[in-house]
Amino acid sequence: MRRIARAALVVVLAVAGAMHFTWGRRGFRLAVPDAVPRATGLSKDQVVLWSGAVEIGLAAALTGAAARARVGGSASALRRVGTIVAVFFVAVFPGNIHHWRSGRSVPGLDTDAKRFARLFLQPVLVAWALWSTREPARR
């Protein structure tokens, strides 16, 4: 079950990352809090592009770590990547809050209720990243 959850997480990361470069780019720009460009010196568009690249990179790292763990490699690398993915999900959460508070619509999040409900997805993503990258104890 964890292997399936990991594979699904890879797909979610890769698709979300690709969306940062394509049709979802405008919506992601709306989610970037105003403080981020001030703090980083990057434009909102650059933040979106970099975060998309990070998501694609995380999908690749997760794929590689899972493959190594399957062929007898250490599961610790898989746990580390899972932790990094979880930290990434925590790091982008202020963008979800900013998007909800701004009340700006994007495809799929076109009401206050949907934007508010989206906030509750982030802890699920964090738990998903952590759970799917921990192998259960062998009996």
Rank of each mutant, 00 (worst) to 15 (best):
R3P: 00
I4S: 14
I4C: 12
A7S: 14
L9G: 05
V15L: 13
A16R: 10
G17T: 09
M19D: 15
T22P: 12
R29S: 08
R29K: 10
L30K: 06
L30N: 08
V32P: 10
P33H: 01
D34E: 14
A35M: 13
A35W: 14
V36S: 10
P37F: 04
A39G: 12
T40K: 02
L42A: 00
L42T: 07
K44Q: 11
K44N: 05
V48S: 01
V48W: 01
W50K: 06
S51G: 03
A53S: 07
V54L: 05
G57R: 04
A59R: 08
T63S: 06
T63V: 09
T63C: 10
R68Y: 06
R68F: 11
A69W: 04
V71M: 10
S74D: 04
S74H: 04
A77I: 02
L78I: 05
G82M: 06
V85N: 10
V85C: 13
F88Y: 02
A91W: 11
A91Y: 11
N96L: 12
I97Y: 04
H98Y: 13
W100Q: 08
R104V: 07
G108E: 13
L109N: 07
K114H: 03
R115P: 01
R115W: 05
A117E: 06
L119P: 10
L121I: 13
Q122W: 13
Q122Y: 12
P123N: 12
L125C: 08
L125N: 02
V126D: 09
A127E: 12
W128F: 01
L130F: 03
R134L: 15
R134T: 14
E135I: 10
P136S: 15
R139H: 11
